Simulated assay, not measured.
Amino acid sequence: MSERTDTATEAFVAHRNLLFTVAYEMLGSAADAEDVLQETWLRWTGVDLDEIENQRAYLVRITTRQALSRLRTLGRRKESYVGPWLPEPLLTAPDVAEDVELADNVSMAMLLVLETLAPTERAVFVLREVFDLDYDEIANAVDKTPAAVRQIAHRARAHVAARRPRGVVSPAEARGALAAFQRAVETGELQDLLDILAPDVVLLGDGGGVVQAVLRPVTGAEKVGRVLAAGLGKMAEGTLLPAQVNGYPALVLRFDGEVDTVLAVRIDDGLITGLYAVRNPEKLSHMDKETALRR
């Protein structure tokens, strides 16, 4: 291996976790983020390193452009997706939870908010608000002028602020909500869970047409309660255990050791306003090994 290749490899490996996090935040899909990293590596190996002043910024630029291209393709795939589309859950290391801002931004609830942004808005928001890149760097990454990027950032920030969870949820709050869910499964008594469901709670299930899941959002505590009550018996046959998913406490349901469902929650003002059940087997491959995320 040449010295130049060694240098390129070292730089890529040094920033790999950051690049994955950028791609994942933009896509909500670990599988697509991995593909973006492969494409980034192929382009990086063709770059003249002597011409690069800031390797980190250049790698982020390549990753962003590849992710934007992939995001538009992903948008077309989602149009034909069976049932609600949820982000791909990641088993995350404890240090992700310790970075409160990062955990908030990669949470399932926040990734669903980012889904409501246009591709370029999402890229600009992620690079500015999560990774604190300056406007010139972002402009290079998204092929816009710095002035245009400022406008996009302002618009995206306002859009997200109107939809994101109200205040940062503490891990203790999330654990408490999930403990109530776990008690309901273990005892068959649903009341503890119903007591912490917001009146306008929304249940989303992602089976991708591969396994059974609710095919449209279920809204309202009474309706959500009925759906959950119908599934408690089946869930009790498996093993339901807490795990750190996307930086927050979540529950993982396993049957015979295999992950069946990842359940995450959104909490606003102490009540569960969102229940997210990911069941599509194609989205559960990152639940057996911790994924390192970095800013």
Rank of each mutant, 00 (worst) to 15 (best):
T5Y: 13
A8W: 09
E10M: 12
A11P: 04
V13D: 10
L19S: 03
A30Y: 05
A30P: 04
L42W: 07
W44T: 03
D48Q: 11
D50L: 11
E51G: 07
Q55P: 07
L59W: 09
V60K: 11
R65T: 08
L68K: 05
S69P: 08
R70C: 11
R70L: 10
E79M: 05
S80L: 04
Y81C: 01
W85D: 09
L90G: 01
D95R: 12
A103D: 08
L111H: 00
L112P: 00
L112G: 00
T116C: 07
F125D: 02
F131Y: 07
F131H: 13
L133Q: 02
D136E: 11
V142H: 00
A148T: 02
R150D: 05
I152A: 02
R157F: 02
A158C: 01
V160H: 00
A161H: 00
A162M: 03
R163S: 00
R164H: 00
G167Q: 01
S170Q: 02
E173F: 02
A180G: 02
A184H: 01
G188I: 06
Q191P: 07
P199A: 01
D200L: 08
V202M: 07
G205M: 08
G208N: 03
G209F: 07
Q212P: 01
L228R: 04
L228M: 15
G233R: 08
K234Y: 15
K234A: 13
K234L: 15
M235L: 15
T239L: 13
N246A: 03
Y248V: 03
Y248A: 10
P249G: 00
L251G: 02
V252N: 00
V252P: 01
L263E: 04
R266H: 09
I267T: 02
D269W: 09
T273C: 14
Y276Q: 10
A277C: 12
V278N: 11
P281N: 09
E282Y: 10
H286P: 08
D288S: 15
K289F: 12
K289W: 12
T291K: 14
